[in-house]
Lab assay of single mutants.
Amino acid sequence: QLNAMAHQIQEMFPQVPYHLVLQDLQLTRSVEITTDNILEGRIQVP
């Protein structure tokens, strides 16, 4: 299920590496919260 959620987020934010999306999802278990984390700059994109 997390993989499906990660792919959904990757479609919206292809610039964010998959492993970072998955790592955040493991903590949040939420597409909405992880999306917010990306938008708020809480996930550092190399």
Results as ranks from 00 to 15, higher is better:
1 Q>V: 13
1 Q>L: 13
1 Q>K: 13
1 Q>P: 09
1 Q>A: 11
1 Q>S: 14
1 Q>I: 14
1 Q>H: 13
2 L>H: 04
2 L>D: 04
2 L>W: 11
2 L>C: 08
2 L>I: 12
2 L>E: 05
2 L>R: 02
2 L>K: 02
2 L>S: 04
2 L>M: 10
3 N>R: 13
3 N>Y: 14
3 N>G: 09
3 N>E: 15
3 N>T: 13
3 N>K: 14
3 N>H: 15
3 N>C: 13
3 N>F: 14
4 A>R: 10
4 A>I: 13
4 A>C: 09
4 A>D: 09
4 A>P: 05
4 A>V: 12
4 A>T: 09
4 A>F: 12
4 A>L: 12
5 M>K: 06
5 M>R: 04
5 M>F: 08
5 M>Y: 09
5 M>C: 07
5 M>D: 06
5 M>H: 05
5 M>Q: 06
5 M>W: 15
6 A>I: 10
6 A>N: 01
6 A>V: 11
6 A>Y: 05
6 A>F: 06
6 A>D: 01
6 A>S: 04
6 A>P: 00
6 A>K: 02
6 A>H: 02
6 A>C: 00
6 A>Q: 03
6 A>M: 08
7 H>Q: 14
7 H>W: 13
7 H>T: 12
7 H>K: 15
7 H>E: 11
7 H>I: 13
7 H>V: 11
7 H>Y: 12
7 H>G: 09
7 H>N: 12
7 H>F: 12
7 H>M: 14
7 H>C: 12
7 H>D: 11
8 Q>R: 13
8 Q>S: 09
8 Q>L: 14
8 Q>Y: 13
9 I>R: 01
9 I>E: 00
9 I>N: 00
9 I>D: 00
9 I>W: 02
9 I>K: 00
9 I>S: 00
9 I>M: 06
10 Q>K: 13
10 Q>I: 13
10 Q>G: 09
10 Q>V: 14
10 Q>A: 15
10 Q>H: 15
10 Q>P: 00
10 Q>N: 09
10 Q>R: 11
11 E>S: 12
11 E>P: 02
11 E>Q: 15
11 E>K: 14
11 E>C: 09
11 E>H: 07
11 E>L: 15
12 M>L: 11
12 M>A: 08
12 M>Y: 07
12 M>Q: 11
12 M>I: 10
12 M>D: 05
12 M>E: 07
12 M>P: 01
12 M>S: 08
12 M>C: 09
13 F>P: 00
13 F>K: 00
13 F>R: 01
13 F>Y: 10
13 F>V: 01
13 F>M: 03
13 F>S: 01
13 F>G: 01
13 F>H: 07
13 F>T: 01
13 F>D: 00
14 P>Q: 05
14 P>E: 03
14 P>H: 04
14 P>A: 04
14 P>D: 04
14 P>I: 03
14 P>F: 03
14 P>K: 05
14 P>V: 03
14 P>W: 04
14 P>L: 03
14 P>S: 04
14 P>M: 05
14 P>R: 04
15 Q>R: 08
15 Q>V: 06
15 Q>Y: 15
15 Q>L: 08
15 Q>C: 11
15 Q>S: 12
15 Q>H: 15
15 Q>W: 14
15 Q>M: 12
15 Q>D: 13
15 Q>E: 12
16 V>P: 04
16 V>A: 05
16 V>K: 01
16 V>E: 02
16 V>W: 07
16 V>Q: 01
16 V>S: 03
16 V>G: 01
16 V>L: 11
16 V>I: 15
16 V>D: 03
16 V>F: 11
16 V>N: 00
17 P>C: 05
17 P>D: 07
17 P>K: 05
17 P>R: 03
17 P>L: 06
17 P>W: 05
17 P>M: 05
17 P>E: 06
17 P>V: 06
18 Y>D: 03
18 Y>L: 11
18 Y>V: 08
18 Y>F: 15
18 Y>E: 04
18 Y>N: 04
18 Y>S: 05
18 Y>G: 04
18 Y>K: 07
18 Y>T: 06
19 H>R: 08
19 H>C: 15
19 H>K: 08
19 H>Y: 09
19 H>E: 13
19 H>N: 10
19 H>F: 12
19 H>T: 09
19 H>G: 08
19 H>A: 07
19 H>M: 09
19 H>L: 10
19 H>P: 06
19 H>S: 09
20 L>N: 02
20 L>P: 01
20 L>I: 09
20 L>C: 07
20 L>Q: 06
20 L>F: 07
21 V>M: 04
21 V>I: 15
21 V>C: 04
21 V>H: 02
21 V>E: 01
21 V>R: 00
21 V>N: 01
21 V>Q: 00
21 V>F: 03
22 L>R: 04
22 L>V: 09
22 L>Q: 05
22 L>A: 04
22 L>H: 05
22 L>P: 00
22 L>S: 02
23 Q>C: 07
23 Q>V: 06
23 Q>M: 12
23 Q>I: 11
23 Q>K: 12
23 Q>S: 10
23 Q>F: 11
23 Q>H: 12
24 D>E: 02
24 D>S: 04
24 D>K: 00
24 D>T: 03
24 D>R: 00
24 D>F: 05
24 D>C: 06
24 D>W: 05
24 D>A: 03
24 D>V: 02
25 L>V: 05
25 L>G: 01
25 L>S: 01
25 L>I: 06
25 L>D: 03
25 L>C: 05
25 L>P: 01
25 L>M: 02
26 Q>H: 10
26 Q>F: 13
26 Q>P: 00
26 Q>R: 10
26 Q>I: 15
26 Q>T: 11
26 Q>M: 11
26 Q>V: 11
26 Q>A: 13
27 L>D: 11
27 L>S: 12
27 L>Q: 12
27 L>N: 13
27 L>P: 02
27 L>I: 15
27 L>A: 11
27 L>V: 12
28 T>M: 03
28 T>G: 02
28 T>K: 01
28 T>I: 01
28 T>W: 06
28 T>D: 04
28 T>E: 03
29 R>H: 15
29 R>I: 09
29 R>V: 09
29 R>A: 13
29 R>N: 13
29 R>S: 11
29 R>P: 04
29 R>D: 11
29 R>T: 09
30 S>Y: 03
30 S>F: 03
30 S>P: 03
30 S>Q: 03
30 S>K: 05
30 S>C: 06
30 S>L: 02
30 S>R: 05
31 V>P: 07
31 V>G: 06
31 V>S: 08
31 V>E: 06
31 V>I: 13
31 V>F: 09
31 V>Q: 07
31 V>N: 06
32 E>L: 10
32 E>F: 09
32 E>Q: 14
32 E>N: 08
32 E>S: 11
32 E>Y: 10
32 E>P: 07
32 E>H: 08
32 E>V: 10
32 E>R: 12
33 I>H: 09
33 I>V: 13
33 I>R: 13
33 I>P: 00
33 I>T: 08
33 I>D: 10
33 I>N: 07
33 I>A: 14
33 I>Q: 13
34 T>C: 05
34 T>M: 00
34 T>P: 00
34 T>Y: 02
34 T>I: 03
34 T>Q: 02
34 T>S: 04
34 T>R: 00
34 T>N: 00
34 T>D: 01
35 T>A: 11
35 T>F: 07
35 T>H: 06
35 T>W: 07
35 T>Y: 07
35 T>K: 12
35 T>Q: 08
35 T>I: 15
35 T>G: 05
35 T>S: 09
35 T>V: 15
36 D>S: 15
36 D>E: 15
36 D>Y: 14
36 D>W: 15
36 D>G: 13
36 D>R: 15
36 D>F: 15
37 N>K: 06
37 N>E: 01
37 N>C: 02
37 N>Y: 00
37 N>S: 04
37 N>Q: 01
37 N>G: 03
37 N>D: 01
37 N>R: 10
37 N>P: 01
37 N>A: 03
37 N>I: 03
37 N>T: 03
37 N>M: 01
38 I>A: 02
38 I>R: 00
38 I>W: 04
38 I>V: 05
38 I>E: 01
38 I>T: 00
38 I>G: 01
38 I>S: 00
38 I>Y: 03
38 I>C: 04
38 I>D: 00
39 L>I: 11
39 L>T: 08
39 L>N: 08
39 L>A: 07
39 L>M: 10
39 L>H: 07
39 L>V: 09
39 L>F: 05
39 L>E: 06
40 E>K: 15
40 E>P: 01
40 E>S: 14
40 E>T: 09
40 E>M: 14
40 E>C: 10
40 E>Y: 11
40 E>V: 09
40 E>I: 08
40 E>H: 13
40 E>D: 08
40 E>L: 12
41 G>T: 02
41 G>S: 05
41 G>E: 04
41 G>Q: 06
42 R>H: 08
42 R>L: 08
42 R>C: 09
42 R>F: 07
42 R>E: 03
42 R>T: 06
42 R>K: 08
42 R>V: 05
42 R>M: 07
42 R>D: 03
42 R>S: 05
42 R>G: 04
42 R>A: 06
43 I>K: 02
43 I>E: 02
43 I>Y: 04
43 I>L: 15
43 I>Q: 02
43 I>R: 02
44 Q>E: 10
44 Q>T: 11
44 Q>S: 11
44 Q>W: 13
44 Q>N: 10
44 Q>A: 09
44 Q>G: 13
44 Q>D: 10
44 Q>C: 07
44 Q>L: 11
44 Q>Y: 14
44 Q>I: 13
45 V>F: 11
45 V>Y: 14
45 V>N: 11
45 V>K: 09
45 V>D: 11
45 V>H: 10
45 V>Q: 10
45 V>I: 14
45 V>R: 08
45 V>W: 14
45 V>P: 09
45 V>L: 13
45 V>T: 12
46 P>F: 12
46 P>E: 12
46 P>I: 13
46 P>M: 12
46 P>T: 12
46 P>W: 10
46 P>V: 11
